[in-house]
Design a protein around this nucleic acid. Sequence first.
DNA 1: TCCTGGAATTGAAAGGTTTCAAGAGATTCC
DNA 2: GGAATCTCTTGAAACCTTTCAATTCCAGGA
Lengths: 343, 343
Amino acid sequence: MVSQLVPRRGASVKDVAAAAGVSLGTVSNVLNRPERVRPSTRERVERAMLDLGFVRHEGARQLRAGTSRALAYVMLDGRNPFFTDVAQGIEDAAMADELSVFICNSAGSDSREHAHLEHLQQQRVQGILITPVDPDSAFLAEIVRRGTPVVIVDRTRGADRFCTVAVDDVLGGRLAVEHLVELGHEHVAFVGGPTAIGQVRDRLEGARSAWVEAGRDPDALVHLATAGLTVTEGRAAGERLAGLPRRRRPTAAFCANDLLALGLLQQTIGAGGDVPRDLAIVGYDDIDFAAAAAVPLSSVRQPRQELGARAAALALEEATDPGHMHQQVVFQPELVVRASSRG
Amino acid sequence: MVSQLVPRRGASVKDVAAAAGVSLGTVSNVLNRPERVRPSTRERVERAMLDLGFVRHEGARQLRAGTSRALAYVMLDGRNPFFTDVAQGIEDAAMADELSVFICNSAGSDSREHAHLEHLQQQRVQGILITPVDPDSAFLAEIVRRGTPVVIVDRTRGADRFCTVAVDDVLGGRLAVEHLVELGHEHVAFVGGPTAIGQVRDRLEGARSAWVEAGRDPDALVHLATAGLTVTEGRAAGERLAGLPRRRRPTAAFCANDLLALGLLQQTIGAGGDVPRDLAIVGYDDIDFAAAAAVPLSSVRQPRQELGARAAALALEEATDPGHMHQQVVFQPELVVRASSRG
DNA sequence: TCCTGGAATTGAAAGGTTTCAAGAGATTCC
DNA sequence: GGAATCTCTTGAAACCTTTCAATTCCAGGA
């Protein structure tokens, strides 16, 4: 059901001007350059605004001034703490610049993402930060062509057409697997999917090269594919692992994100297994829940808030500096070792 | 550093009209009443829009049409999955109505909340949904006076001045404690704070009355006050519990939310305790991580998504129906018993 | 050929704000 | 006392879209 919207009109600058006995221009000056108006006048105008419940019409302001004071972030998954932390970083940075941030959530859906993007362009936001469903989508490039800066967060694709801010996922995968190799594991599972997701692909790639470089048997690193990056999928993966005959069963698992790792952890413990004795687990993202898990989770930490802050800065730079050149910022991940892999 | 914003102007309806060789009005008709324009003309106009990269200026549209197509939700804590789930419910409902949703996060800060509210009014959103830092704040009432509908989410205060959508927290507290009483616990801790937060107060009140009505010693229900509702605080509370001499130590804990409960759970298990044998735990909210905890957490479930959906519907009703009366919607919580309290 | 009626298109006005050149008032200096 | 200089204030134009009454166009009927 689409409801009928009714226009709502309140007091305008004109009403305020009339009430305060001044001209439009003066009211505008009170709003935008208060130092230019005589204190006594200013006070009268402010009084009138208060009395009339005046609220400046942002649409009209923007229309005339040609500028908006907002940034937007389109998250890939609003229920994954990783992304809400990135969003927090963006908000903090934007606030320092007196910008507000619209947080949107595509929830992994193409059409939802598209709807948000369309709307944000129409809002004339200063810049769109996005962790896209598909970073190669032509639509993103089209947005830039139409004049809105786009910064890709947490992906390195499309590097020539956008600024990107990402963490080196290949390195992250390496770190995790090098750690497991050092612990002496001969049989490791990589849990994650679908590989259509770039993050998954890169982490797997890093894992594989570290594994091979350590001289391990390539076939002893198995890829346990999942349909998504959720706790539920992690539990399902745990069941599949448990179903393997003991000698073919991995002694360690590296999960493509912490939600998977938490699911796997829960399933393993619930089935009477011991972590890390029976199965060492390393996750990815180091969300707050990782450290708080029953067996604190080893994880590859990404500088989430900094990721967001930097992305905001880049978008703003692109919006304001005509000579802007696209940049690729790559942060280094860091392995945090906790009980789930420490013996 | 506040950066200098530069206006960004693209093609306008006027440009499109010129390119397509039609008048302004026709372009507008293509946008708003396509059925009224002859297919061949429409096609020509659409072609021109595409070529010029035309993006409708939402500010101008709003100015003239007097109506916006957006709703906003101001969350109390963007990092608590409970609120992101509520947000999801709002988004789903809004999308069905072809509205977009601005998600904001006050992160518990008064000033941040204030900044968001100010901005949202200026955006002329159709309605503001909010879980406020302080539901009694006069500012909220002022917003309504100025013409923007406000719906309070997850609080029942201010019931006369706003629509509210909430869950019966007193009942939720009762359910949790009745369950613990049934299990035979004689010594129970309520973990949560600060009591300035209404949710905490209500849940404690429900807990206390259930306790007393069951004929238990009032002093045997201790309130373990925390400074906030986070995992970290939960762990700290666990340490304090563990420090108590055994005979004065509660055998069960009811936590004001799941984050606290997860922290408490982790600390307890980490210190070698057994849940629920040494300490039964019941949380509140039933976030996804609760079921996924190493010892699946009993919790009081709130219909999060429905809470959001209903709030959105109320805001819209208030925005569109001149004869609108404020409503108080109260949902019933539901106890979900899992291993953490099942013996 | 002319008229009629419906369909398609047009053009001007309006909506709230900001900007800026120009005007008014007050103050200072010779 | 008058000119020059400030400090404040003003009024009109512009931003982009939508709306709606008026106009044009066209096909069909007389």
